[in-house]
């Protein structure tokens, strides 16, 4: 069981309290009704599946109930960092392997 640092609770908490919520930094278009088929496909269906660093959303569903973002290495399963929802994708990762 992983330990995940919740950026709102400001401490590491057991994975059982969390739920993964898919890839991060995919913003819903502000005028979604006007999106082309291709753009909608990219927005809704296409997801990265990297070997290595992934940006993903988690929800501390059985804790503070907040959604937040995490950077995780899919090879080591280690969390590089977590940050609050709405914050920009970090430009630099602390101690990232790649």
């Amino acid at each position: 069981m992983l330990l995940i640092r919740c950026p709102y609770c400001e401490e590491e908490r057991p994975e059982l309290e969390f739920r993964n919520a898919g890839e991060a930094h995919i913003a819903r278009p502000t005028n979604i009704a006007a999106e082309s088929d291709d753009d909608f496909e990219k927005f809704f269906f296409i997801r990265a599946n990297p070997k290595g660093v992934i940006y993903e959303r988690w929800r501390h569903i059985h804790g503070c109930a907040r959604f937040f973002n995490a950077v995780r290495d899919t090879v080591t399963d280690k969390f590089v960092m977590t940050y609050k929802a709405g914050e920009p994708k970090p430009a630099k990762l602390p101690g990232a392997s790649k």
Binding site: C9, R13, P14, L16, E17, H62, G63, C64, A65
Partner: peptide, 10 residues
């Protein structure tokens, strides 16, 4: 105080 898990219940 904390919301958390007890077995299969919140």
């Amino acid at each position: 105080a904390s919301r958390t898990i007890l077995g299969k219940s919140e």
